[in-house]
């Protein structure tokens, strides 16, 4: 089977400072990869390099496109990359405000990707938006409300709906539950689990929260100071950590 994403020796430097370096892995359809590390570990830099927001200094990020097979995203033309970013890829930001248009209604936010790929029937667009609101557990009576009137958790769920409406195969998430209340987090994580399974999504999730990866990720990469120090199945890395830093991370988590 062809991997959905092949990451080869990706590195990003900030002058002499290492953003991230020597990152390589393959991601298959339906797999969720978690990337954990503390602040400054390079996980967000890596995510941005993979998602095409930053150009890596070295390495390849090869995505198995529907039309042309495996293509290196780093050297892909910008129009093609932007098109991919609206269709086959999704990016869920930590702060919903970065991933939504706050002055556009919920329905408009969800419909935008559909309109961007050529949908021109208002009724259909609205119906699909309403359907997705239901799937992320937002009452469809709020379809015309602006996200500025939503709670943080609702904004985040709206962001997810906006991203998933075009049925992407790969979702990048940057601290998707950061800043949310614990009960809200639980609901969001559960929703994500369900959607990942239903839609057969692959995902790369960056987080500092080990509970999130335990719940959502099949595989885990631990980063420290720009390097990947350990990688493997999530439950194996968390239950049988090999690297000293991973052991430290796991033992630092407070039990409730």
């Amino acid at each position: 089977m062809t991997p959905l994403l092949q990451v080869k020796d990706v590195a990003k430097m900030y002058g002499v400072r290492i953003g991230c370096t020597d990152v390589s892995f393959d991601l298959y359809p339906g797999e969720v990869m978690g990337i954990v590390g503390e602040s400054g570990s390079g996980k967000s830099t890596l995510l941005n390099c993979l998602a095409g927001h930053l150009a890596p200094d070295r390495g390849e990020v090869i995505f198995d496109t529907r039309a042309d097979g495996p293509v290196d995203m780093v050297t892909m033309s910008e129009p093609a990359r932007r098109m991919l970013g609206r269709t086959d890829w999704a990016f869920v930001h930590q702060h919903a405000r970065d991933g939504l248009r706050m002055s556009v209604s919920a329905g408009g936010n969800i419909g935008e990707r559909l309109m961007a790929v050529g949908d021109r029937h208002y009724g259909d667009i609205r119906a699909r938006a309403a359907d997705w609101l239901g799937r992320v557990e937002i009452s469809d009576a709020r379809i015309d409300d602006r996200p500025s009137a939503f709670s943080g958790g609702m904004q985040q769920r709206l962001q997810i709906a906006r991203n998933l409406v075009t049925g992407p195969r790969l979702v990048f998430m940057d601290e998707p539950t950061g800043g949310l209340d614990v009960s809200v987090q639980a609901r969001l994580l559960d929703l994500l689990r369900g959607l990942v399974r239903e839609m057969g999504l692959s995902a790369i999730i960056v987080t500092h929260d080990l509970a999130v990866v335990r719940l959502l990720a099949d595989r885990l990469m631990v980063m420290k100071d720009g390097h990947v120090v350990e990688t493997g199945l999530t439950d194996q890395v968390l239950d049988d950590p090999q690297h000293g830093y991973t052991q430290l991370l796991v033992s630092s988590v407070l039990q409730v």
Partner: peptide, 9 residues
Amino acid sequence: MRLIYGNYL
């Protein structure tokens, strides 16, 4: 058991 399941390396 955990070794067999892959939970331990």
